[in-house]
Design a protein around this nucleic acid. Structure first.
Lengths: 140, 140
DNA sequence: CTTCGGTAATTCGCGGCACGAACTACGCAA
DNA sequence: TTGCGTAGTTCGTGCCGCGAATTACCGAAG
């Protein structure tokens, strides 16, 4: 259902706005919660061109949420890391976004919520790691 | 699951791009498949400010997909309608987008697909028409 | 009829977002 | 050393979304 996607999108965007973030900047912060990454890695993870990343990191850096650090192993490369403030905001935003999305399913009985989570998890798993081992379904 | 939303978004965006549309223009076409609407109505349906609609309709009109028609009852108002070409494209795009999204669940057995559709439908129904009749669940 | 508040849409200026092409600067191997 | 590949940036373009101000009209109240 496409419409359920709109709901999630809207909930996500609302959560971001309420924390003074754009959805993209929020996503960036969430990715960086785990660990710092290089620009190229971030682009791959978020599905963006390198040139798009520069701007996104620029804006987020200007807001004091992330920092560019030199990579010890590679003079060319850069590690993007959360600042103190960025880390706090990321935690808050992440929790809030989860809460809101959880809330969308509030009308469902717990068993159905579990079922839904399980099904969506399967869909994600099926689509997240394709490419390899396309044995029987002559894909492309 | 937020990630399933990304998948749907990506599938939708891909479908749009392949038909030479932006996601927003694709959405506009889909809404107009049913019938023409005024600018204000469209803004409400798509969750956009009126000033945002003007530009979106401008660009889509420039591509020859929609047309502004005067409203017989109200000289101020405008009806936005699909052109011939826009109608064809809307049909194609809509079918394609549905196919792609359907495909995301291809790895699930039919029974699970039905279950998923049912659950998501409930979530949508619960969230689409709130506001009224919040009787027992002291909502908000 | 005139006045006047509300409404439909547009215009303007701003900023975010995404892209590709061109460029810099470095890593690395031949 | 030469030269290819890679990490990031810059630049120019276009889409998108917003709020504030503006234009033009509707409709009701006086």
């Amino acid at each position: 259902m496409v419409r359920s996607t709109f709901l999630v999108n809207a909930a996500y965007a609302d959560a971001a706005r309420e924390h003074g973030l754009t959805p993209q900047q929020g996503q960036l912060l969430c990715v960086l919660m785990a660990q710092p990454y290089g620009m190229g890695e971030l682009g791959a993870m978020l599905g963006l061109a390198k040139s798009s990343m520069t701007g996104l990191v620029d804006r987020t850096e200007r807001n004091g949420l992330v920092r560019r650090e030199p990579d010890a192993r590679d003079t060319r490369a850069v590690r993007v890391a959360l600042t103190e403030e960025g880390g706090r905001l990321a935690d808050d935003f992440y929790a809030d976004a989860c809460r809101r999305i959880e809330n969308l399913a509030a009308g469902l009985p717990p068993a159905d919520k579990d079922a839904l989570a399980g099904l969506l998890g399967r869909v994600v798993a099926d689509n997240e790691a394709p490419e390899v081992f396309t044995e029987s379904t002559g894909g492309e």
